[in-house]
């Protein structure tokens, strides 16, 4: 860095949600922050912790996201522009709806050239983003350290706050 030579900017994020849509912001910001030569740490807590499992399969639920545009990623342009007015009673109760919505969102992302969560996570690991897994969440949900990727640094609130205390950017996601 030119103007701030010597000291790297530091970014501290908290990832608290584990659905497909909410998995993106922490991994996009963390990988981009590292690419901008910042020192990045992410504290994965509550449902966010599942994003550090060896196998991840985040899903998205339209039921809890009423503003989500319901569009199809295939077919003619006019068809793809249609916003399907699907009532909440269906999105919440129809078996398999979440699976279909997840598959449609993944297709849309792929078609638009957006990286997968796995790719972004790999880039974070390659670029030395510190991934802190919440010990308390592990205990509460019955996970063991073996469920998670090797790069996870296990800790609690104090571990995160010690890192965040010197951060220039902090965000709760």
């Amino acid at each position: 860095m030119v103007e701030t030579a010597g000291k790297k900017k530091r970014m501290a994020l908290i990832a608290s949600k584990g659905t497909l849509d909410w998995a993106y912001p922490p991994f996009i910001l963390a990988s981009t922050g590292a690419a901008m030569e910042m020192e990045v740490g992410v504290f994965f807590t509550f449902y966010g912790l599942t994003l550090l499992k060896k196998e991840i399969s985040p899903k998205v639920s339209p039921h809890s996201n009423p503003a989500m545009p319901m569009k199809m990623p295939f077919g003619p342009d006019g068809f793809q522009q249609i916003e399907w007015p699907i009532p909440n009673i269906l999105t919440g109760n129809m078996p398999g709806f979440e699976t279909v919505a997840t598959s449609l969102m993944k297709q849309t992302f792929q078609k638009k050239g957006v990286a997968t969560i796995e790719e972004l996570r790999d880039i974070c690991i390659e670029s030395d983003v510190r991934l802190i897994g919440c010990q308390m969440t592990m205990d509460v949900f019955g996970f063991s350290k073996d469920d998670f990727i090797d790069e996870v640094d296990i800790g609690g609130a104090a571990t995160f706050l010690e890192f965040a205390a010197e951060a220039d950017i902090q965000m709760f996601i």
């Binding site: 990988s31 981009t32 690419a35 990286a115």
Partner: peptide, 10 residues
């Protein structure tokens, strides 16, 4: 799409 162009550039 974002953020891949920046990540690949880096």
């Amino acid at each position: 799409n974002c953020p891949l162009p920046v990540l690949k550039t880096k």
